[in-house]
């Protein structure tokens, strides 16, 4: 494949296109208050590429990732996945179809780990593989390899992450997000609470994912990390945020 820049050759197939996306929250409890958080957002993401969402902090960049993951409803606009044998429009996808899509296609490293009581760290990490029917021993081995790479002390592997520090929880979360090797990966501040050594591990994981052809869309506050992983920046100041309220998750905006 030809590469114009002479940097790493990139397959030019788009894996994801977003066109004219809008998002508005309507809060019934606040007398029908309408909050516009996204206006006319469009983007294209290619296989093997990491596109970084740029814009001032608190503008609501996570909203886009949540819409791509089916967490927030798509009210207006188009989100389309491209496969070798056809396309898939997410805005019209029935709810049940998202189960398989999340299992096999779209991975998500959220900002915070959702802790399930009693479930050990290693089990949290291997769950995406088990959901695909993977062999348990194999899944466990891969989970442990990832946790070791992310320098999570071995004595923590069999413990539920509820009592872990923020950084330790985040590493469990990252391992869980990367273990499935989804072709499309959404990264919401994966390096936020990590020290320099672990940041380097995450950057290495991102580079390996690129080499596999993974398309990634990420939010990174750390400028150094951003520079090392981003193939392109997508400036969002024009299409995200609202004068009425910025960066509010639904729950925050209700209270």
């Amino acid at each position: 494949m030809l590469s114009e820049t002479g940097v790493s050759p990139k397959p030019s197939l788009p894996r994801l296109t977003v066109d004219g996306l809008h998002k508005q929250f309507l809060l019934h409890g606040q007398g029908g208050l309408e909050i516009d958080v996204m206006r006319d957002l469009s983007l294209t993401l290619h296989a093997g590429e990491c596109l970084v969402l740029a814009g001032r902090s608190g503008i609501g960049k996570s909203t886009l990732l949540k819409m791509l993951y089916g967490d927030y409803r798509i009210d207006q606009g188009w989100i389309r996945l491209h496969f070798d044998d056809g396309e898939l429009d997410l805005e019209t996808l029935p709810a049940y179809a998202w189960h398989g899509l999340r299992r096999d296609v779209i991975g998500y490293v959220s900002q915070f780990l959702r802790v399930v009581p009693r479930v050990a760290a290693v089990d949290v990490v291997m769950e995406p593989l088990l959901a695909r029917g993977a062999d348990e021993n194999e899944a466990r081995q891969r989970a442990e390899t990832l946790l070791a790479r992310l320098n999570l002390p071995e004595r923590l592997w069999r413990l539920p992450p509820g009592t872990f520090s923020g950084g330790e929880q985040q590493r469990v979360n990252i391992a869980r997000g990367f273990i499935g090797e989804h072709p499309l990966l959404l990264l919401d501040e994966p390096t936020a609470s990590l020290d320099a050594a672990n940041r380097d591990v995450v950057i290495a994981l991102i580079h390996e994912a690129k080499a596999r052809g993974t398309a990634m869309l990420g939010i990174f506050h750390d400028e150094d990390v951003r520079e090392r992983v981003a193939d392109r920046l997508l400036p969002l100041d024009g299409s995200l945020g609202s004068p009425a309220a910025t960066s509010q998750s639904f729950r925050e905006s209700l209270s």
Partner: peptide, 16 residues
């Protein structure tokens, strides 16, 4: 809807 969507982006007044 999807569980996450109902809990994180509820649409109906009562669900909210």
């Amino acid at each position: 809807g999807l569980t996450d969507q109902i809990l994180d982006d509820p649409q109906h007044e009562y669900t909210q």
